[in-house]
Amino acid sequence: MNLRIIKGGIQDTVQDNGRYGYQYLGVNPGGTMDRLSAQIANILVGNSLNEAVIELHFPASEFFFEQPALISLSGADFMASINGDEVPRHRPILVSKFSILQFYRLRAGARAYLSIRGGFDLPKWFCSYSTNLKAMAGGYKGRVLQKDDEIKIHSDEVLTSILGKKEYQVLPWKADIGWEDTHLTELLALPGNEWEQLTAPSKESLEQASFMITSNSDRMGYRLSGQLLSLTSKEELISSAVSFGTVQLLPDGQLIVLMADHQTTGGYPRVAHVISAHHPRLAQLNPGERIQFRLCDHAMAETLMAKQQQHVLQLEYACKFKLEGIGIMTR
């Protein structure tokens, strides 16, 4: 039995934690833009943290469930509804056979995540379910989801018995994410290798000014618009590896922040790197919003990441306990 797409969105793809080990062949890791929201969505339905989810952009796809499923939504608020009734984010939701999931409005954030208990029955490409649009591989046929696509999902008898005759049921607990307001525009960053080559006024701008995310922004990177920055050195860099969060200075004096689908290598000066703990909040920002960079050190970057992970593990433990309490076993 399947999850059927009855209307295509602008760019909805299957993603997991990413594909690692192939960057030396030019294959980028990809994966979810907002790792944290995807993990929360998985936790709520009892999946492992890195199970594949559907990453939605607004206007998002519409889904038809050919069988009962336990789902959850996290990340951006797209005003989700089941059969026309609005349903909340960050809650496990049981949906019956023949239910329709739709999204009406972009209220906050940029990317929503749909998790389904048991994940999707899709082939992995190089150890990952993530969709690589360049290589046209991974995820669902290596492409964005379209109308009439059908993804096989796993069936679970227990869901039918809990649901009874109800069309859907929002389970009575939620993931408390108050500790991580993902919609913040201040981003901590480590200085990049070419930070020291920035002119003094450019360093000051980077730390003090705000930068607007332009419409030329997508899963590959966010082009920013702000004060022009310049380097003291004109030495050209030859290409070397770059990473999610790398802030590069383009020849026109503007910045680009590399995101999940970034190229594996690049030759523009690396002036800063957004810390991993702040990738999720960056992933939830839209063109037109302004961001500020604040420099920090490795100790801070690692502490924030460890704290985030601790919350995730606590949430995983609590949700496992709740799910098992109603007879849904978790691994």
Binding site: Y20, I238, S239, S240, A241, T265, H298, A299, A306
Partner: peptide, 29 residues
């Protein structure tokens, strides 16, 4: 996690949380 060779450099991508598990508390990954 993985290693990326380039023209004249080598980049080592690592999982800071996995590293932190295996080193003395207080030490930076």
């Amino acid at each position: 996690i993985e290693i990326v060779p380039a023209y004249s450099s080598l980049t080592v991508h690592y999982d800071m949380l996995a590293v932190a598990k295996n080193i003395p508390k207080g030490q930076q990954a």
